[in-house]
Design a protein around this nucleic acid. Structure first.
Length: 482
RNA sequence: UCCUCUUUAGCUCAGUUGGUUAGAGCACCUGACUGUUAAUCAGGGGGUCCUAGGUUCAAGUCCUAGAAGGGGAGCCA
């Protein structure tokens, strides 16, 4: 079967005009005339449809009546130059086989715009829309580009565990893993659950980060990265959070904070360029979609740049690098702070930056992606390298317009004494983390790393507004359908 | 979890101060016309007005509680 088939992207781009071809796909629309019917067919290989011309003298009425939006068909015919103006080539059908019908009374997708909320409830069918076809192709391209970027740089991909026995990673609420029957858990004498009898003989959870294990690998392989599923049981109901998402976490030995920033900026630009170079049709469609959507909004709420212009802008400009301390100065002197327009007024050094502050810095003040470094140690994780000032750590957060924090990373604390002291101060159970501490006892070196939320990158590249629309089957509080 | 908005036909939405038989566009069915481009034109079918209570002579409309969804916030990637 496969050997005879030609993908639509090949039909549209090649010089197969005049050849007999077979093409399979799903019907987007059918337009009927007296003597001829036109079928727009799509097989996922490109956002463009191929037009099938069905002469009613050749294709019988009992076949045509089954060809409705959503039906799967196989078409044999000749690829010819089109007489119409909207497409360059089309297929003159000689035979059409209806592979799978789609009852038009029941098929929920129409050849018109649907709301993204509606399509979310039809996630099993939304791949069949232009928007989700485009997103699916771009998502694949970005996954591939991540691996290509790191492979070309000599990084090793490692699989860190999805089930973890450590609850010290400090990145939010975790999903518990157990084989116990929740109605009948083995208990200790004091009434607590006896995890010694559980599958792993201890309490286990789904991972919230592969970083700690990534560090172990980096301190032997030099440069590694993970790209795996990550789970957070936070009750987060926003357009930027998922309970199950995919994270890219490189860890590099002999990288200081500046090397870390250089790599992160280079990677983000590489991914953007890869999308521009390889997903032009899909990006153009999404850009047009976004412009149409924003037409109903007032002028001041519309994007300043169209999607492709925005991607090029990021590509062509250096990210602004500045410190937390500088950012606080800028924010303290900012108009919204002085006029008390912020919900959280910046009073003094040490305050955690709220998303309104991050947005001000990125969207109003610098108007570029911003890398903030050297945060107060008290608002950052225990494993970050402490600066000599005793107050700050070598953290770096990369802030993107419209998205906020897209990358969080740091130079790691490689000094055993400093790390142990900080763990004790922050009540990190050092006994459980013996293996992490041992890497600082044996051959410890300066090293760094960061985490990129893959779906947040997808939000930026596609211009989509809700993270539930850039992953095929989103997992969010109260939603694990499909 | 908090704030806020929404829920009416398969989809997108209108529905006035509470008042007769709840509307439109698209989709679907029938017909006309046509190498069409989200085809066009005419006609037709299609409703648990989110759910449960309540107020009232009368509730899509007002009140209470709940559910689902959107937007914002927190947590973060």
């Amino acid at each position: 079967m496969q050997k005879e088939l030609t993908k639509i992207i090949v039909l549209l781009s090649s010089s197969k005009v005049g050849e007999k071809i077979t093409v399979n796909g799903w019907v987007r629309t059918k337009r009927e005339s007296k003597n001829v019917a036109f079928i727009a067919l799509n097989d996922g290989s490109t956002i463009k449809n191929i037009q099938i011309v069905a002469d009613k003298e050749i294709i019988s009425e009992d076949i045509l009546v089954k060809i409705n939006t959503g039906a799967a068909i196989s078409v044999k015919g000749e690829l010819v130059e089109s007489k119409g103006t909207e497409q360059s080539v089309e297929v003159i059908a000689e035979t059409i086989i209806v592979l799978g019908e789609a009852n038009p009374d029941e098929y929920p997708l129409q050849p018109k715009r649907h709301s993204l909320e509606f399509l979310r409830e039809k996630a099993h069918l939304r791949f069949r829309t232009n928007t989700f076809g485009a997103i699916t192709r771009i998502r694949h391209a970005m996954i591939f580009a991540v691996h290509k970027f790191f492979n070309d740089k000599g990084f090793y991909n490692i699989h860190t565990p999805i089930i973890t026995g450590s609850d010290a990673e400090g990145a939010g609420e975790m999903f518990h893993i157990s084989v116990f029957n929740p109605e009948n858990m083995p208990l200790n004498e004091d009434g607590s659950v006896n995890y010694a009898e559980d599958f792993f003989g201890k309490e286990t959870n789904l991972t919230v980060s592969g970083q700690l294990e990534g560090e172990l690998a980096a301190l032997a392989m030099s440069n590694v990265y993970t790209f795996g599923p990550t789970f957070r049981a936070e009750n987060s109901n926003t357009s930027r959070h998922l309970a199950e998402f995919w994270m890219i976490e490189p860890e590099m030995a002999f990288y200081d904070i500046n090397d870390n920033m250089d790599l992160a900026e280079e990677m983000l630009k590489y991914l953007v360029k890869y999308a521009l170079d390889n997903c032009a049709d899909d990006l153009q469609f999404l850009e047009k979609r976004l412009i149409d959507e924003e037409k109903s909004k007032p002028q001041n709420q519309r994007s300043e740049m169209a999607l492709i212009e925005k991607l090029n802008f990021v590509l062509e400009n250096d990210f602004v690098r500045t410190t937390y301390t500088e950012a606080i100065k800028i924010l303290k002197n900012s108009k919204p702070n002085k006029k008390k327009k912020f919900n959280f007024i910046i009073e003094e050094w040490g305050a955690d930056l709220q998303s309104e502050h991050e947005r001000y810095l990125v969207e109003k003040h610098f108007k570029k992606p911003v890398i903030l470094t050297d945060y107060p140690k008290d608002i950052k994780a225990f494993y970050m390298k402490q600066n000599d000032d005793g107050k700050t750590v070598r953290a770096m957060d990369i802030l993107f317009p419209g998205i906020g924090e897209i990358i969080g990373g740091s130079q790691r604390e490689e000094r055993y004494d400093y790390l142990l002291k900080r763990m004790r101060e922050m009540n990190i159970p050092e006994k459980e983390m013996w293996w992490y501490l041992e890497t600082r006892k044996f051959g410890t070196v300066v090293h760094s790393g960061y985490g990129l939320g893959f779906e947040r990158m997808m939000l930026f590249v596609t211009g989509m507004g809700n993270i539930r629309d850039v992953i095929p089957f989103p997992r969010t509080p109260k939603n694990a359908e499909f």
